[in-house]
């Protein structure tokens, strides 16, 4: 798939539902500097979703889909959980894996795509919840990192099993009492960002999705580093407002409260030396491109 192929047959254009016509006309496939600011002025790659009202996961989805650098040549791999309710509405190729084996699927997929399309950049992005990433699929998650598989793993961390009623997960914070975990968690939240760093990830970030510009930056960095160097990992706090007893409009504040410097989602970043070098090169190129565009605009107005 590439954006040139996202064209409707002329003879049947008029019968296509308007959301598909809009995708072809105004989605940001192929746009070099696509990002969250396109939301509202272009067709989003998520049509609608069946998540709860006010769910921070839906915000995260919108920001991520707006920020992927190469959506027309990206395949996302999902797993069981709230995220699997959203993927059917997403206009990016995606695969639903069995619960927990998303990183194994992504490993094979990335290798197969490299063989099948040797001359083309094909990104693979895993997006799964904390149950799939840290509990049921920890083996597959870690093994993919040990093998230096070149794809990005994103964990939507809501600190419990949300759509089955609130059971304890490895990423739940110590002492938290959930509907299906009445005793309260007895041990600490698994420190997966640190484990990711030690397991060979070249770019690791732990943050919330309260700031779209930050989400855009970390997604772009993670995908570029995974493409060129090796595995990357993003742990994004997307609280389940229902399971922590909040109202629909309180998700954003919950994330802001949890990202304060002493809290568990204070911004944390690890970048390996090769990744630092790559990101510096990309930033320099970006600066050059913007300067050239500015100069061109100046000449045009003169």
């Amino acid at each position: 798939m590439s954006k040139e192929r996202i064209q409707i047959s002329e003879a049947l254009y008029d019968i296509m539902p308007s959301d598909y016509q809009d995708l072809v006309k105004s989605a940001t496939y192929g746009k070099e500097d696509r990002g969250w600011k396109d939301i509202g002025t272009s067709k989003e790659l998520i049509e609608q979703h069946s998540l709860c009202a006010g769910c921070p996961e839906s915000m995260a989805f919108r920001y991520i889909l707006a920020s992927l650098p190469n959506p027309e040549d990206t395949v996302m791999v999902g797993s069981t959980g709230c995220t699997s309710l959203v993927f059917p509405m997403v206009a990016v190729h995606n695969i639903h894996s069995l619960f927990g084996n998303q990183n194994a699927i992504a490993s094979g997929l990335k290798r197969a795509l490299s063989v099948r399309f040797p001359g083309r950049v094909k990104d693979v992005v895993v997006l799964a919840g904390d149950g799939a990433t840290v509990d049921i699929g920890l083996d597959m998650t870690l093994q993919a990192w040990f093998r230096q598989e070149k794809f990005t793993t994103i964990c939507f961390d809501n600190e419990l099993y949300a759509n089955t009623g609130g059971q304890e997960s490895g990423l739940m914070q110590k002492g938290f009492v959930a509907k299906m975990a009445p005793v309260g968690k007895l041990f600490d939240k698994v420190r997966l960002p640190e484990i990711a760093r030690e397991s060979g990830c070249h770019y690791v970030v732990n943050c919330t999705v309260s700031k779209p510009s930050l989400v855009e930056k970390v997604i772009r960095n993670a995908v570029h580093v995974a493409r060129e160097i090796g595995p990357t990992y993003l742990q994004l706090y997307t609280p389940c407002i229902l399971e922590i007893g909040k109202n629909s409009m309180e998700g954003l504040q919950e994330m802001r409260d949890s990202e304060k410097p002493t809290e568990r989602f204070a911004y944390k970043e690890y970048i390996s030396e090769p990744a630092k070098q790559l990101l510096a090169e990309l930033a320099a190129k970006d600066k050059e491109r913007k300067a050239a565009a500015k100069q061109l605009a100046g000449q045009a107005s003169a």
Partner: peptide, 22 residues
């Protein structure tokens, strides 16, 4: 009921089939 293989102009053949369906 035309499906994706004729609705989307993947290649010239698909576009021709779409014209035939119309």
């Amino acid at each position: 009921f035309p499906g994706p293989l004729v609705l989307w102009a993947w290649n010239e053949k698909a576009a021709k089939k779409a014209t035939a369906v119309r």
